[in-house]
Design a protein around this nucleic acid. Structure first.
Lengths: 263, 263
DNA sequence: GTTCCTAATTGGTATATACCAGATTTCAGC
DNA sequence: GCTGAAATCTGGTATATACCAATTAGGAAC
């Protein structure tokens, strides 16, 4: 048989593509509970036989579920049902580590890199320091049950936190900052956006290059309003959920932006 | 020539896949400014000829850029460079409409649906009303320069806002609520997550089904803390950027949330 | 039991082909 | 100049094939 487009009947007006039908079918199996978290899905070749389509079509169905985040893929091992999302409370600047642990989430932290660098233009602006300021950088990968959740890169003022990198960073750094240096977060400016994963991020998070991820950047300030930390978290999109509580009370606000309100 | 994997040299250790190289190349052209916002990209067939690969490989390159959000596709017209993101200030519950207009963003609103419904379990819980409560629902599509940005669905208490749907909804609804009903937003609980687009959302936003989108849900309360509106925005991921300002005033950790706040 | 090699399985990359349907362009006819 | 039909362009869907590399499962040798 040659490429027939919509196989069979010609009169069909605009039938839902076969690969989406198959994706729907598998989606139901997950919703119903026939397939549970971390369970392996049928392979591409298996799907193609089951539904009587070519491997490429079966694959497209599985890829659709993957890009939705319902399913994750482990290179050359198979595809699996994604676990439930974790919630990050943006307003509550309390350490994510602490929150996760009180909610009995199995959280593993791996320090993948540490370095002493100097601030480039972007970093300098965020930390309100001159370009060239010495900065301590560390990169950490967070997982649950061996499943990567997000990669975090944090930048601290080297002057203010001497020997910070000598501590064990596989724990709450908020804790270290408080107990060893007497510094606590007071306010933060946060930005959240969706974008494609870079090569190194993709490798750490175990996703395909250019797969969609969620980026959260924040500048953390102390009680005096002085920024001392810039952090960037890159989340597997399907694992992220960010909550916040906003108060519109007209008054209070310094800061740059102040447009009129009203909704 | 038959499927050769990495064409040519055999000794290559683990070369970057051809389709990613091509994507990189096009990405540079966009970064450099050779291709600008809303400019059309070379077609799949054109890319395949230019780089001497099959159409499917050329397509994969373009699809990679698409899933990154750098490029958007208009069915059977071609692929185009995505415009810059818009920023939504989560803390400032100020109307997105008002903010956009003061920043001279060309914002067009289309009301795609209005209805009077009764609250299901989820909606009832969010609005703290019994199941079956009468609710006014309206769906609006937001665009800039004919380019879809997000779809918003809002649910209002019907009792409290009689005849609300009779107003012109292609404008700031906060304005209507304030001027006609004397109700203003005071606080809000917000959740942001990434997920796959549903069929109807995909159609409105002009994206492929199961493409990644960003969902923002919020419960809006009045000065007395009573919720009167539940809203859900579904953004094209590449068009969204959410900012917030958080204050950690040490103490307080009460349930419904108390921390965070604005800008 | 443990180690080690081999088989089979699985997703990843790549090509070639075919047909469809919407969108755009071209150009003849008016 | 305008209209409308035809040709062309574009992405969308679908199949078939081939080979690669990592992973895993099986079984032989120790």
């Amino acid at each position: 048989m040659d490429g027939q487009g919509n196989t069979g009947r010609k009169g069909d007006p605009s039938p839902r593509p076969r690969f989406l039908q198959i994706a729907d079918d598998i989606r139901v199996q997950i919703a119903v509970g026939a397939l549970k978290e971390h369970n392996i899905l049928p392979s591409e070749r298996s799907v193609s036989q089951t539904y009587g389509v070519s491997r490429m079509t079966g694959r497209r169905a599985l890829e659709a579920l993957e890009s939705e985040g319902l399913v994750y893929s482990s290179d050359r091992r198979g595809r699996f049902v994604s676990p439930k999302r974790l919630t990050y409370n943006v307003s509550n600047m309390v350490s994510f580590v602490g929150t996760a642990q009180t909610n009995d989430v199995d959280l593993k932290i791996e320090v993948t890199d540490t370095a002493k660098i100097t601030a480039d233009a972007h970093l300098a602006a965020a930390l309100e320091q001159p370009v060239g300021t010495e900065i301590l950088q560390y990169v950490r990968l967070f997982r649950t049950c061996a499943h990567p959740i997000f990669v975090e890169t944090e930048y601290l003022l080297a002057d203010r936190f001497p020997d910070f990198l000598d501590h064990d960073l596989a724990q709450s750094t908020t804790q270290i900052l408080a107990s060893r240096y007497g510094t606590a977060a007071s306010t933060g400016d946060i930005v959240i956006r969706m974008r494609g994963a870079g090569a190194s991020e993709a490798a750490l998070l175990n996703i395909a290059a250019s797969h969609a991820v969620v980026e959260l950047e924040q500048v953390i300030r102390d009680g005096a309003g002085v920024p001392f930390c810039f952090g960037r978290q890159v989340w597997r999109g399907e694992m992220a959920e960010f909550s916040a509580h906003a108060i519109v009370n007209g008054r209070d606000d310094r800061t740059p932006s102040r447009q009129g309100y009203t909704t």
